[in-house]
């Protein structure tokens, strides 16, 4: 205490930095030295197991993951815009939107997909949702994304300054024209960061499609990796799948960050 208080603030700060590096390095060294490296390599980074997954994991699994994600995101976001506008407009349709949002936001996505895949055929005399298990899965992701993004977009709409609405209305624009041409373009810009978050979550949630059942051709990354794991009795496929998710999400967040900067009207 007396030694510390005798130091200058800059010296104390430097001492703190050095101490945190020492602790960090210590922990890292401990992990590196005590880990069973030969077993780890064989179990998690097994080159033969990893090699056996290619090219299927790219041409089928990654392709399907991206396809399911993009379709669900595009349609789900459009649904979110509609729900957000309806909720703000009020009336019976507004209440419908509120009910829709609360239902699909409050229920786990897994249960929603399950309900579309198995509940709908039960309830409607064996009639499936078009597209079979994949169709049911994507529809599940769409309604969940719609519910979540509706709340994000509603917040974005409300964040647009009320003067924008007044200016447009005073020019004779109708409520609908004002929303479409003035408010929404600004609101969608505001919601780019939370919607990016939503997209990344959706990319990972596409793994929930396994509950609907998948064929050799409709497997996405996680299902593919799980099947591969059972075949080889080795967890390396999980590491490969994780790496592929990161290969998609890291450049994606970087690109969106750039887009955000480009669209900033203050720049």
């Amino acid at each position: 205490m007396s030694v510390l208080s005798s130091l200058k603030p800059t010296q104390r700060a430097r001492l703190g930095t050095i101490a945190s590096y020492v602790v960090g390095l210590g922990v890292l060294l401990f992990v590196l030295l005590t880990a069973d490296w030969p077993t780890i390599t064989k179990q998690f980074f097994n080159p033969e197991v990893a090699a056996s997954m290619f090219p299927g994991i790219i041409t089928v699994a990654l392709r399907n993951t991206l396809l399911y994600t993009i379709v669900s995101f595009v349609v789900g976001s459009l649904l979110g815009i509609v729900l957000a506008v309806l909720k703000l407009t009020g009336g019976p349709l507004g209440w419908f939107a509120v009910g829709f949002i609360e239902l699909f936001r409050g229920v786990p996505a897994l249960l929603t997909i399950f309900a579309f895949a198995y509940g709908v055929p039960l309830a409607f005399g064996g009639n499936q949702i078009p597209g079979g298990s994949v169709g049911a899965g994507i529809l599940g992701l769409i309604v969940v994304t719609g519910a979540y993004s509706a709340e994000i977009i509603r917040a974005g709409i409300q964040a647009v300054h009320s003067g924008q609405n007044e200016a447009a209305r005073s020019l004779g624009m109708t409520q609908g024209q004002t929303m479409f041409w003035v408010i929404l373009p600004q609101a969608l810009r505001i919601v780019i960061p939370p919607m990016t978050n939503e997209l990344v979550m959706l990319l990972k949630d596409s793994s929930l499609l396994f509950i609907a059942g998948a064929t050799v051709f409709t497997k996405e990354l996680t299902t593919f990796a799980r099947d591969s794991l059972s075949t080889h009795a080795n967890p390396t496929p999980l590491i490969v799948a994780a790496a592929l998710y990161l290969i998609v999400t890291l450049p994606l967040t970087w690109l969106v960050g750039r887009l955000e900067k480009r669209l900033d009207p203050k720049r």
Partner: peptide, 12 residues
């Protein structure tokens, strides 16, 4: 036509 104190131009 209406002109506002805070201009209210469309920034985009």
């Amino acid at each position: 036509g209406m002109v506002f104190q805070s201009f209210n131009l469309f920034p985009n």
